[in-house]
Design a protein around this nucleic acid. Sequence first.
DNA 1: TAGATTGTTAATCGATTAACAATC
DNA 2: TAGATTGTTAATCGATTAACAATC
Lengths: 204, 204
Amino acid sequence: MGEVPDIVIGRLPIYLRALKHLMAADKEFTSSQELGRILGIGSAQIRKDLSHFGEFGKQGTGYEISYLSDQISKILNVDRDWSVALVGFGDLGQALAHYAGFASKGFHIDIIFDNDPAKLGESAKGTPVLDVSQIGPIIAERKIRIAIIAVPASAAQAVAEQLVDSGIRAILSYAPITLKLPEYVRVQYIDPVTHLQRMTYYLA
Amino acid sequence: MGEVPDIVIGRLPIYLRALKHLMAADKEFTSSQELGRILGIGSAQIRKDLSHFGEFGKQGTGYEISYLSDQISKILNVDRDWSVALVGFGDLGQALAHYAGFASKGFHIDIIFDNDPAKLGESAKGTPVLDVSQIGPIIAERKIRIAIIAVPASAAQAVAEQLVDSGIRAILSYAPITLKLPEYVRVQYIDPVTHLQRMTYYLA
DNA sequence: TAGATTGTTAATCGATTAACAATC
DNA sequence: TAGATTGTTAATCGATTAACAATC
């Protein structure tokens, strides 16, 4: 089952988001059709995607929302908490450190690194800010697997390599640069400018 | 030529980013092979993608970096400045308002909206913060086409509809919710939690 | 039972890749 | 000229969609 297309994996968090939303609205059951309507995709795609992992619905009635939500959470390994390291405590890093959405979904920013001596010792919500020289020992000691990079593009590659050497296996990078890392490291990018440039093409 | 796949359009900003990077390093020529190495994709894909728009290279020598960069900028309509409206001036909105990367790429946040009276009149880099009730008149008057949404999920759909009614045609949304909008509106989403959840699947 | 919706198969559609003639 | 690399064609690969038997 390790052969599930990554594009399918990429849709599961979206399904999960919609399910949580329905749960919050006290709905008990849903269908691939309803989910498709909410998400603007085809119902067949949703059923096909889910079929990679098992059978979660019932003919005639659809899916029990809390059950499907639990199952997808398990598949994605988000039925547990994750410790996350944040590198970069500038404007963006500070905003990320304060963002409540991470912890509420089980991603806890437990340690922050920066290379500016003026920022060391500061803390966001009680999370300490350490010097980047501590990346190696701390990440290794705490066995942290996930990191968020919020440093300038010029520093990102070096930081990423350090993180991977220390044991990080998944990186969410806000630096506008494509990282060169071993293939066993998962990387996701967030670059708002890229998204904007993708849309201006369609603005005559 | 309106039939260029959106997935191809989505890669052009990445190509552009790599080209700017090479330019900054004072390189004059590149090849699909070199670009592919930098970006971790195949050279054939790059040539195929570019072929949708014309012929930009020379056999034997490849692409002149500044020329190709200019051409892609024109294709994406980023060879000009764009005025952008930001809605939401909380932690995230403020970080976005301070982010230098937008203006340097031609995206100017010229107006900010929030619904918290305490925040009105504040300003980020001289950009005023107005009440959300002003969205309609101001966006229409200034003919702004692009907006960034940084409000809570619960408010995002209503804000988006207001924006579209006022003339906005491209939205970059940070709200973790799928917006339901007319198909003539381009929408891009940024939800860091979704990206993290997509990676934990692979963390045994 | 009648109606609804699943999971899956097969068909369609589209994107990626390999290969190469053209040519700088 | 010899070497390199383009733009494009054709082949491959993979993802989406339509359709439907199974069944709640």
